[in-house]
């Protein structure tokens, strides 16, 4: 049967809008089941706030299965909290104990402006994908799916990279606010596959340069990998850097040819 945690001290970032300077507010959670998820704990807090005629804490969340990438939160200074390879929505209260103080903040990165309280705008990620994170394959003309055999190891490596849920924890955990893990994961996914070769270098150049417009620079701290709920390896950054270097040479040659 479930146990109950008592007397949790919550310190939560409140900010009414993008221009408000924001502040921490303290709340006490008298009792919560250890079977509850972290976000269910916030649901309980919010019901209580509505009961007191106050504004509930705004936070992003949706599937609560760790796959949609909507949830976020810095919990005690860690992106997605203390459990490795776990998004906030999959974190359960059994990881905490009675009397704990829990500090809850939004993702902190200049590329992710705060909308309200704990909710941030991550649309810079969409801009990166829009610039090249795809294979141009208009509907209708695809050849038979088994026409090009793909070695299992290649398909598996592409899958490892494409598991990225686009949550932004890598950026939030990075001291520079860099998005290299996110961008590298998408580049690795597509550049590893035979279908992705035609646009490999064009894609890499466009995505890296769009990334640089919004995000900080990578200095190999590796915090991103530690924070990633899908355990995406920083190897993808090495692959991206290699292809980016090649792309600068290759694309220049192609431009001079035309």
């Amino acid at each position: 049967m479930s146990n109950h945690l008592k007397n949790l001290k919550l310190k939560i970032w409140r900010q009414s809008g993008p221009t408000d300077s924001g502040h921490f507010e303290n709340y006490v959670m008298d009792e919560i089941s250890d079977e509850a998820s972290f976000l269910e704990m916030l649901d309980v807090l919010n019901e209580g706030l509505i009961g007191e005629n106050k504004l509930p804490v705004v936070f992003d969340h949706d599937c609560r299965e760790g796959i949609c990438g909507t949830c976020s939160l810095m919990i005690n200074g860690q992106a997605h909290g203390p459990e490795r390879s776990t998004a906030t929505c999959q974190l359960h209260m059994r990881k905490f104990k009675s009397g704990d103080e829990i500090v809850i903040e939004p993702w902190r990165a200049s590329a992710f402006p705060i909308i309200k309280d704990l909710m941030v705008d991550r649309s810079a990620f969409d801009r990166i994908i829009e610039s090249g994170g795809f294979i141009t394959a208009p509907t209708g003309g695809a050849p038979d799916a088994n026409l090009i055999p793909i070695p299992k190891t290649v398909a598996d490596a592409a899958m490892d990279a494409s598991q990225c849920i686009g949550c932004g924890a890598c950026v939030a955990a990075c001291p520079n606010g860099a998005a290299n893990l996110f961008t590298g994961a998408k580049i690795a996914h597509l550049n590893l596959l035979p279908q992705g070769q035609a646009e490999r270098f064009k894609r890499t150049e466009a995505m890296v340069e769009t990334m640089d417009e919004y995000f900080g620079s990578c200095t190999n701290h590796g915090e991103c990998e530690a924070a990633c709920p899908k355990e995406i390896s920083i190897d993808v950054i090495a692959l991206m850097n290699k292809d980016y270097r090649k792309s600068k040479l290759k694309n220049r040659k192609e431009i001079s040819r035309t």
Binding site: F134, I135, A137, T139, G140, G141, A142, P143, D144, A145, A155, D156, A158, M159, S162, H189, L190, L193, Q195, G196
Partner: peptide, 9 residues
Amino acid sequence: DQMVAQGVP
């Protein structure tokens, strides 16, 4: 066919 062409692993 379509999804493989798009790079679904």
